[in-house]
């Protein structure tokens, strides 16, 4: 059961409940494929650094989940078929990354950010 992190950019024309609906859809899909979602973190509307498909803003969604290694291929098929999604990326998290996300979620980084800032 590896841990993965999925980041998705939806088209900005997506309404709020569509956004929620597709979040739920993919979380259920992961659960159905034998995975388990750990944390979902919708960033909402953000401006992109460069236009994608002629759009300069997108709705970001970051989801951390665990699952068997063949879950990503099925996820990818679903996402490529879904035209609401402009771009998606699944990254594998090693143990440092999982620990980093865990600490970040519990607000443990207030001090370290200052360290990074003055570094």
């Amino acid at each position: 059961m590896n841990s993965y992190e999925l980041m998705v950019i939806f088209t900005p024309v997506l309404s709020e409940e569509d956004f929620k609906a597709s979040q739920k859809k993919y979380s259920d899909l992961i659960a159905e494929l034998g995975g388990a979602t750990i944390a979902s973190n919708p960033w909402g509307l953000k401006s992109l650094a460069y236009p994608i498909q002629k759009k300069t803003t997108g709705i970001y969604w970051v989801l951390e989940f665990q699952g068997p290694s063949d879950i990503n291929e099925k996820l990818k098929i679903q996402m490529l078929r879904d035209e609401q999604i402009m771009r998606h990326m699944i990254t594998r998290l090693d143990k440092y990354a999982v620990e980093y996300n865990h600490v970040k979620r519990n607000g443990g980084f207030a001090m370290q950010d200052k360290e990074k800032q003055e570094a």
Binding site: T91, D94, Y96, E99, Y100, K104, Q112, E115, K116, A119
Partner: peptide, 18 residues
Amino acid sequence: CRFKKYGIKYVDYKDIEF
């Protein structure tokens, strides 16, 4: 090397400021 000095083990691609 700030990573060794501050013991940062993972570089998060979402942390733009860093």
